[in-house]
């Protein structure tokens, strides 16, 4: 029995990049300190503004994270190709932020799509803090 449980544990840990939102926050905190020696923590309210902030895209359109994810991260969103996006808020979707590679893939794509640049660790951390905090 004990052996079986250990095997089961091993199976899960083999899932290379499995993570928790808290672990990811710690990683972003370490990066943010490197990017900015005056780093003073993440802010859920800054994350909330970041999520809704509209950017004048070079295509002429105004875009934000909310364009696809809606203004409430507990809601399902929709891609431009009409596919449902599951909620971003952890409370509505516990699968979020449990796969580090997936998180970085989507930050990589969406920051470039919306902001036309990479996101800073501060921005990623604030946003994640917001999604963890939303109840």
């Amino acid at each position: 029995m004990c052996k079986n449980l250990m095997l089961l544990g091993l199976l899960f840990s083999v899932n290379v990049l499995a993570a928790t939102p808290q672990e990811l926050l710690k990683q972003y905190e370490a990066q943010a300190k490197q990017e900015n020696p005056a780093f003073s923590g993440f802010s859920a309210s800054n994350g909330a503004s970041f999520f809704k902030a509209e950017h004048a895209h070079s295509s002429g359109q105004k875009v934000s994270c909310s364009t696809c994810h809606t203004t409430d991260p507990r809601n399902q969103g929709k891609t431009r190709a009409n596919k449902v996006i599951e909620p971003m808020a952890i409370i509505a979707n516990p699968q979020r932020f449990t796969d580090a590679a997936k998180v970085e893939k989507w930050f990589g794509r969406n920051c470039k799509d919306v902001l036309e640049r990479a996101c800073t660790a501060q921005e990623k951390g604030d946003y994640l803090q917001y999604l963890v905090t939303v109840k």
């Binding site: 431009r80 190709a81 794509r109």
Partner: peptide, 9 residues
Amino acid sequence: DKHFGENAT
């Protein structure tokens, strides 16, 4: 990187 107007790298 420019997949129908979106970044899909």
